[in-house]
Nucleic acid binder design. Structure first.
Lengths: 175, 175
DNA sequence: GGCGATTACGTGACATGTCACCTAAGCTAG
DNA sequence: CTAGCTTAGGTGACATGTCACGTAATCGCC
């Protein structure tokens, strides 16, 4: 039986070692299920999606509850057109309002409405309860610090090497 | 000025403390950007989406490259209808094939095609390179273990308390 | 001032994901 | 054996996200 098959390509720097594979598998599994559970709880209890909540949260801590599309995208970690589409949808539901900036005619500013702020205030406790229940109740307290440090350094690396722009208030750590 | 406002509700068990908030923020930020970067690299380099890759990966390690919809959903951490929709789409692209089980007429089995396996083999190295570049190159090696342990215990908790069923090969750890 | 390059973001076609509902098959108790 | 309950998953309406492209505004150099 003739097998004129090219060998399968390999990663430039080799496959992940056993410990890395295990870490990666745990990470992938957690994020898939957490995303589903968070979205589901918000839809069921607050009538909003997780993406809604992410936008409201980012605006909720912004100066004047206002941000431009680009700033919002970088803050959350979204692509700009994703923001554009989504805030349009949110504005039809009265959660945010959109309007041109007074200082730059290209810029669109997204502003949290009173209704949006109220929706956020109503949604946040249930969301936090779920996060505590599913994530932190399963996390040994002594691992919170190492987990944080691990993810923060990973995040810094993603900012450095990834394709999306950094948040505007990002200060690169010394390398 | 009259303020007849109900006080904003609070979480049943209180807000997250400072260390938890910091951990959570790091986690949320990492997963949003990692998902985007992974999807983008797969689309650009391999012509497939991250969800495609997740399905192919799960089938790639299954007995005979075959799983039922329900098993696949639980393995990945997806809702069943998500699997149903997505494998239908993948099958039109020749990556998987779907057919009734011989043992239970209700069951649909999803099978990795030769084309699907080939696509997976072609895509995996680039994906691993990206994961290494963005995630592991930013992770201090001595934190791999604690990160893994943290996420594995969180995952076990999500399985226990979340709404999606566990993977079929899930063995509950002693509590 | 003018021009070219860059920036901001809206748009549309299409890919993807959720919920509620439905039909069919399988299981179990009476 | 039958009926009621549970399981499996397909379906559709609609929500969400990506990429490529387009227009308009701004910036900086000559």
């Amino acid at each position: 039986m003739s097998r004129n098959r090219q060998p399968a390509p390999e990663p430039t720097h080799g496959w992940l070692d056993g410990a890395q594979q295990r870490a990666w598998l745990a990470y992938i599994r957690v994020q898939l299920r957490m995303a589903y559970e968070m979205n589901r709880q918000l839809l069921a209890d607050s009538g909003m999606s997780l993406p809604d909540f992410d936008v409201l949260t980012a605006l909720g801590v912004a100066d004047g509850g206002r941000m431009s599309i680009t700033v919002l995208a970088a803050q959350i970690g979204w692509e700009r057109s994703r923001v554009s589409h989504h805030v349009r949808r949110m504005s039809t539901r009265g959660l945010v309002s959109c309007g041109p900036s007074t200082t730059d005619k290209r810029v669109t500013e997204v502003t949290l409405t009173a209704g949006g702020r109220h929706a956020l205030e109503q949604a946040a406790p249930g969301h936090v309860d779920l996060v505590r229940n599913l994530f932190f109740d399963g996390l040994p307290p002594e691992l919170t610090g190492p987990l944080t440090e691990a993810l923060e350094t990973v995040y810094a690396n993603i900012i450095r090497r990834g394709l999306l722009p950094p948040p505007v208030d990002w200060r690169p750590a010394r390398d």
